[in-house]
Structure formats: structure tokens, C-alpha cells
């Protein structure tokens, strides 16, 4: 019993560490890829690690009071918590203890913490940025909620681990026609979730000087950047879990540790591919205005999602 608990705690902390490590690596990879598109060499892929280390090693740290500090705590703590509730490459850490609705709300914890910090600084740039971030959230949640509800009804479970389990033996959701379209809808929403262009409106350096991040620096900025980096892993993993079977290709019961290894590699490749698609779109598009983004998601994306809902609806009725 005690051994079990200790083992699971160790596994979970290991996974969280892995998540952060992958997040920082992704940052480096994204910068490298964007640099290639820009016709330049770009930083080394391990640049993310250096940046985070540097930010945490800054000598003085300027804060705006205890509410400002809460931001850093909640964002790192909250994103780690969210990661624990996701099935990663078929390994479910806590994903049996909560479901997709819980995950959707857990993602809000770091976001809200971040929002508190940004608001507490009292900088108007941060406030405007936060307003845009929240509106973006409202915008992309509608299509993604519709797709997720359609999936829940189709698989008759709300548990993400359950959805992943249903897709085992390579019966990925993306192979089912409505969810192939659903994956495209969700990928658009993912673009907004990851705050990549054309939906990087909340950060928009030329407009509001990186918006909510405007007063963050040193370890505060380090925490927020960690949150963003881990956020890319969480969000891409969510996408992969929903549509690509969580990257599970081999049955663990059959192949043992080898299956874990293969699944992890497949999962890593899949989230990398999903992430790189977002990054490449990011490199060649300008950003929308916030009301244009809202209209885009609620008009086009949500319309397609509604079509999927009707598709599933008719299937259910039959």
C-alpha cells in the first residue's frame, strides 16, 4: 500500500518533470523551425532550458504584491496538476480520477492564476491583454466543446482515458469521418489555445507590448514561461488523446515495457507533429483582431462543429 503510493508519486513527479522537459524542448524546436522559415539559423534547440534557468537565476525579483505572486504559483502548479489528469501515451496517472470536463476546467486554474497576476500589476496593457485572452477562450471553447460533446456521446463516456481506451488497436477517432472534420475544427481551436498566430491576439507585442506578460520578469516570468511551455504539451496531448488514440500503438499487456517505450515515442512524435503544424501556420499569418477571431470561431468553426453534432445526432437517433 505504502509502496504503491510512493511508486505512483514517483511516477507522477517523473512524468511532470518529463512534461516540463518536453515543453522546454518544444520551445527550442519551435524557434528553430521559425528561424528556418525566416531564412536564418536560429538558436540551438536547447535554448528553452537556458532561458528558463536564466530567468530563475536573476538576482532581484520585482513583484507587485502577494496577489502578483499567486500568479506564478497557480500557473506552474495548475498546469502540472492538469498534466497529471491526462492519459499520456496510454499511461493514466490520475486520469481515472476525473474526466474530460474536469480537464477543461482544470486548464482554467493556471489561466485564472495568470490572470490574477496580470491584473494585480495594475498595468493597462496587461488588463487589455487579459481581456483578449479571456475572449479568445470564450471564442475557441465553443467549437471545441461541440466536438468534444459529440465524441463523448459517440463513445458514450466522458472519461478521456475511456476515449483513449476505445481507440486502442489503432481505431483512432480520426478514421471516423465526422471526427476527421472534428479534428480539423479542433486543430483551429488548438491554434487559439496555443496562442499561435493568427490567434496570438492576447500577447500581440506591437499592440500591447506582450499584454499580460508586461510586468513579469525574473522568476515570475520564468514561472509563466514554464506554464506556457507545459501548456503546449498539455494541449497537444489533449488533441492527440482525443483524435489520435493518445499515441497508443502497442498493447501494454502483450508487449510489456517495450510497448511503453514505443508508445512514448509515438506519442512524442505525434504531439511534435501537431505542435509543428501550429508553429508553421504561426509563421506565415498575421494576427486577427479579437472580434474577428470571435467571429471566425463562432461563425465558421462552430458551424462545422454544429454539422458534426447533427451528424452524430442522426447517428444516435438511428
Amino acid at each position: 500500500m505504502v509502496m504503491n503510493i510512493i511508486t505512483s508519486i514517483l511516477v507522477m513527479s517523473g512524468m511532470v518533470a518529463l512534461g516540463f522537459a518536453i515543453g522546454m524542448l518544444f520551445n527550442g524546436i519551435a524557434r528553430k523551425v521559425v528561424a528556418r522559415i525566416h531564412n536564418r539559423v536560429g538558436p540551438p534547440v536547447y535554448q528553452g532550458y537556458i532561458d528558463v534557468f536564466k530567468l530563475f537565476s536573476k538576482k532581484t525579483n520585482i513583484s507587485h504584491g502577494w496577489i502578483f505572486d499567486l500568479a506564478a504559483l497557480f500557473s506552474v502548479g495548475g498546469i502540472a496538476l492538469t498534466f497529471l489528469f491526462l492519459p499520456v501515451a496510454g499511461v493514466s496517472m490520475l486520469s481515472g480520477e476525473g474526466d474530460l470536463f474536469l480537464i477543461l476546467y482544470l486548464i482554467a486554474i493556471p489561466a485564472l492564476g495568470f490572470a490574477l497576476g496580470a491584473g494585480a500589476s495594475g498595468n493597462p496593457n496587461a488588463a487589455v491583454g487579459m481581456m483578449r485572452a479571456l475572449m479568445m477562450m470564450l471564442a475557441y471553447e465553443l467549437p471545441i466543446a461541440m466536438v468534444i460533446v459529440a465524441m463523448m456521446v459517440y463513445y458514450n463516456t466522458t472519461s478521456l482515458a475511456g476515449i483513449v481506451a476505445m481507440q486502442s488497436n489503432l481505431k483512432w477517432a480520426i478514421g471516423i469521418p465526422p471526427f476527421l472534420i472534428g479534428a480539423l475544427v479542433a486543430d483551429m481551436a488548438l491554434q487559439g489555445m496555443l496562442m499561435e498566430k493568427p490567434f496570438d491576439i492576447p500577447l500581440a507585442p506591437h499592440e500591447i507590448a506582450t499584454g499580460p506578460l508586461v510586468e513579469f520578469g525574473g522568476k515570475h516570468l520564468g514561472s509563466i514561461i514554464l506554464y506556457k511551455m507545459m501548456g503546449t504539451v498539455v494541449e497537444t496531448t489533449l488533441f492527440v488523446d482525443l483524435f489520435l488514440g493518445g499515441g497508443v500503438v502497442l498493447n501494454v499487456n502483450q508487449f510489456g515495457w517495450f510497448a511503453y517505450l514505443v508508445n512514448f515515442i509515438v506519442w512524442f512524435v505525434l504531439i511534435l507533429v501537431v505542435f509543428l503544424i501550429a508553429v508553421i501556420i504561426n509563421a506565415v499569418f498575421p494576427r486577427f483582431r479579437i472580434e474577428q477571431a470571435l467571429k471566425f470561431y463562432w461563425k465558421y468553426d462552430a458551424l462545422v462543429a454544429l454539422f458534426i453534432l447533427f451528424w452524430i445526432f442522426s447517428g444516435v437517433m438511428v
Partner: peptide
């Protein structure tokens, strides 16, 4: 518990 764990992790960094 996970939230507390996460906060402890954040605090350790912080």
C-alpha cells in the same frame, strides 16, 4: 492532493 502537489512544486521553484 494533486493541486497541493503542484503548488509545492511551484513553490519549490519559486
Amino acid at each position: 492532493l494533486a493541486l497541493i502537489g503542484g503548488l509545492i512544486l511551484a513553490f519549490a521553484l519559486y
